[in-house]
Design a protein around this nucleic acid. Structure first.
Length: 470
RNA sequence: GGCGCCGUGGCCAAGUGGUAAGGCGGCAGACUGCAAAUCUGCUAUUCGUCGGUUCGAUUCCGACCGGCGCCUCCA
């Protein structure tokens, strides 16, 4: 069996990876905070995780993926109060949009999408364990904090020396009273605003709500167990989010929380991190409105390795749209082909091997994509040569399906409705007749009329074919 | 101030101590009535700059220039 390796943030190096039980990968991925539709930067991370789960399965393992939905937090509460709603009324519609966007980008369903508010009892139980272990304390304001100096390994993931966080850092004191500025909240005592939008629950320490980091630890352990195989997220979550998850999980259980940590780099726009506070965000809806397909977005996101920053530009996106068109045209050609050649089969074998090698080597999607395009060029050539071997054709289709099951960059050709199809067929018949009598003026006028309806035609030896543009 | 990443052709981008994958675009050719699709050839003597190590560096080391990120709740 081929090796599978991933870059582990804990060691800052690419290492062999396998699930601890040799069979099922327990994967936890930090999901969106649902107060606003996720932007493309968020989706770059989710796409990287989608590729990861597909790669793990291709390697032969089962995957149980958890993606949490953070449906209680400061921003959600702010939004709810502004609109006079409960947090649930704010988050429900955003979750719906999240799943629509996700499906548009062909991100597979995770096995679990837990909402933080559904796991309050688990979170409270975890806090009680931490207090019992002496690493958490209840402050004067009835909030509960984790005391980072009680956890020796604190800082191991982010490699931040806790004593040296100083000038330049955004060290803003929040409204809570804690013993050490770097301690983080496990439980936040309720304020009137929280109660007003139904963001407060009973607890042994009074009314309140969970801290952000706590959610992930509690839900990961509740669903996947105390030690998980893989934990992934955006690079900005390394600190403090994942650092804190490790602290509170391991301080509670005494066991390794996640065996391997993977982080995806940022998507930039105009050379700056895409973020709401920078004001340069673009959503899936924006691309959708501009006719950019999910397949094209995937091609774009996978054109660069996940650990490298990627700049969103119109030019790059155009390139992906064209690239994906080529893949689509080729796939249709392969579907329609009557037979293949020995060379086609060899090219398919090569593609099979090269894609696995690339993707099992720390998810090298750009190399996998390169292998796909090399295959397309060779296969087109072989198909030009004719050939009648059913076996090689079958093999080519099988490998292309495998690659597509991994990258999923083959565009859907929009099916024309019956009215349009009928009209097009009529036009094509007229055009074929015109061409037969060498009346090219009429033939070209018809082609122009079709083009204006978004119909592109190709004259081939077997007759004229047509498709909808994009 | 601390920590870290990156800089490869017009654009995107892989990559290795031994002389630059792939995609988009462009140019030329084949095919076509013309197109489209496809194929072929061309499109970086060179990998931010300057040094060093080496038989040999884009790949290792150093300095510098430029871009980006993290340093308490941001994917």
């Amino acid at each position: 069996m081929s090796e599978f390796s991933l870059f582990n943030t804990l060691t800052r190096s690419v290492e062999p990876f396998a699930p601890s039980d040799g069979e099922t990968v327990k994967l936890y991925t930090c999901g969106p905070t649902v107060y606003n539709p996720a932007h493309l930067g968020n989706f770059r991370t989710f796409l990287f995780e989608d590729l990861m789960r597909r790669a793990l399965r291709l390697r032969g393992w089962k995957v149980v993926q958890v993606m949490n939905l953070t449906d209680v937090d400061d921003k959600i509460i702010t939004r709810a109060s502004e609109q006079g709603k409960t947090i649930r009324e704010v988050t429900d519609p955003v979750i719906t949009i999240f799943h629509e966007d996700r499906k548009y980008l062909r991100i597979e369903d995770a096995e679990h999408y837990p909402r933080a508010t559904a796991y309050i009892p688990d979170m409270i139980a975890l806090i009680e364990r931490l207090i019992a272990n002496g690493v958490a304390y209840v402050a004067d304001d009835r909030s509960v904090y984790f005391a980072i100096e009680k956890f020796a390994m604190y800082g191991r993931l982010s490699r931040l020396d806790t004593r040296e966080i100083q000038s330049g850092a955004r060290v803003s004191q929040d409204d809570y009273s804690k013993e050490n500025a770097q301690d983080f909240a496990l439980w936040k005592a309720a304020k009137p605003l929280d109660e007003a939008c139904e963001a407060a629950w009973d607890s042994p320490w009074g009314r309140g709500r969970p801290g952000w980091h706590l959610e992930c630890s509690a839900m990961a352990m509740a669903i996947l167990g105390e030690t998980i195989d893989l934990h992934a997220g955006g690079i900005d979550l390394i600190f403090p989010h994942h650092e804190d998850e490790i602290a509170q999980s391991e301080a509670a259980t005494g066991k390794t929380f996640a065996r391997c940590w993977c982080h995806g780099e940022f998507l930039l726009t105009d050379g700056a991190k895409m973020a709401k506070r920078v004001g340069n965000v673009q959503n899936v809806a924006d691309l959708r409105r501009n006719g950019v397909s999910g397949a094209a977005v995937r091609h774009f996101m996978f054109s660069t390795h996940y650990r490298k920053q990627l700049n969103l530009s119109g030019e790059a996106l155009e390139g992906s749209i064209e690239g994906v068109r080529r893949i689509g045209d080729f796939a249709e050609r392969l579907t329609a082909a009557q037979g293949g050649t020995r060379g086609l089969e060899e090219a398919a074998d090569r593609l099979d091997r090269d894609v696995r090698t690339a993707i099992f080597d720390d998810l090298n999607a750009p190399n996998a994509m390169a292998a796909l395009f090399e295959f397309i060029r060779t296969a087109n050539k072989e198909l030009d040569a004719g050939g009648s071997e059913a076996g090689s054709l079958r093999r080519a289709r099988e490998v292309l399906a495998m690659v597509n099951g991994l990258l999923d960059v083959q565009p859907d050709r929009a099916a024309a409705d019956a009215d349009l199809a009928g009209w097009v067929e009529g036009q094509l018949t007229a055009r074929t007749e015109a061409r037969a009598r060498r009346d090219f003026g009429t033939a070209d006028a018809i082609r122009k009329a079709l083009d204006e309806k978004g119909v592109v035609i190709e004259d081939t030896a077997a007759g004229t074919r047509w498709k909808l543009d994009q």
